[in-house]
Amino acid sequence: MRSKPILTVLHRLAILAYVVFALFPLFWLLKVSVTPNDLLYSEGVRMWPSRTTFEHYSFVIAHSAFPTFFKNSLIVAGSTAVTVTILASLAGYALSRFNFRAKYWIVALMLITQMFPLVMLVAPIFKMLSPLGLTNSLPGLVLVYTAFNVPFATFLMQSFFDGIPKDLEEAAMIDGATQFVAFRQIILPLTLPGIAATLGFVFTAAWSELLFALMLISGNDASTFPVGLLTFVSKFSVDFGQMMAAGVLALIPACLFFLLIQRYLVQGLTAGAVKG
């Protein structure tokens, strides 16, 4: 199927439009973060300020609690991603490979967890966690984020497992492996793209979460960066330059992670879909 040159040009133009649309808001974020305070409003609508500065960045890094927020976020998002991926691999494998009585109840339970506003859980979770000393602590946050992300991650991992032929485990079991050894040594290595995709998906979700971080944490020591970003609003009477600088810095790990895994996300989902 050769396509006409005019179609090719239209195709590339459309792609370009999408890229511009996707990147322009991010570009604006960057632009504001390098605009000196005195030009912020006077050159508010210019594409690029006449002078640029890194003072917002240096302030955020040197004089704010941002490095702490950043470290906390990294710990929380990283541990959540790893824990969720382990739990979701196990549960997704059970859903993909076993027929058992409670299967449909488990699926139903996981679907229901996707159906209500999580706001509803704030007060009950706070009430349950505070006697355990898990409020105002990073482990408490990891616990909550892990639970929130496990259902979707389980479905995701299940679709990856569904794409891997059952023959492989059976061959391994005949070769002398238990089902669990076959899962670990044969199936998991083949699901690496899926694991990468799940890790990335959960990492970005945990990295961005604001509501529970806000409600369960008070004080800078255990704040994650989204909460920290909001403190810029109150503390410095909305210093947009600094806030955007912090925002750009905070975007970096999430974006890096996402750039690395998005390929696998498509691949992995395709593999799952092939089997249908």
């Binding site: 975007l251 996402f258 390929r263």
Partner: peptide, 14 residues
């Protein structure tokens, strides 16, 4: 593909 999928990685409130 990496670039157009990028907005998804941006925290929603940001």
């Amino acid at each position: 593909q990496a670039l157009v999928f990028l907005p998804w990685a941006v925290p929603s409130f940001l």
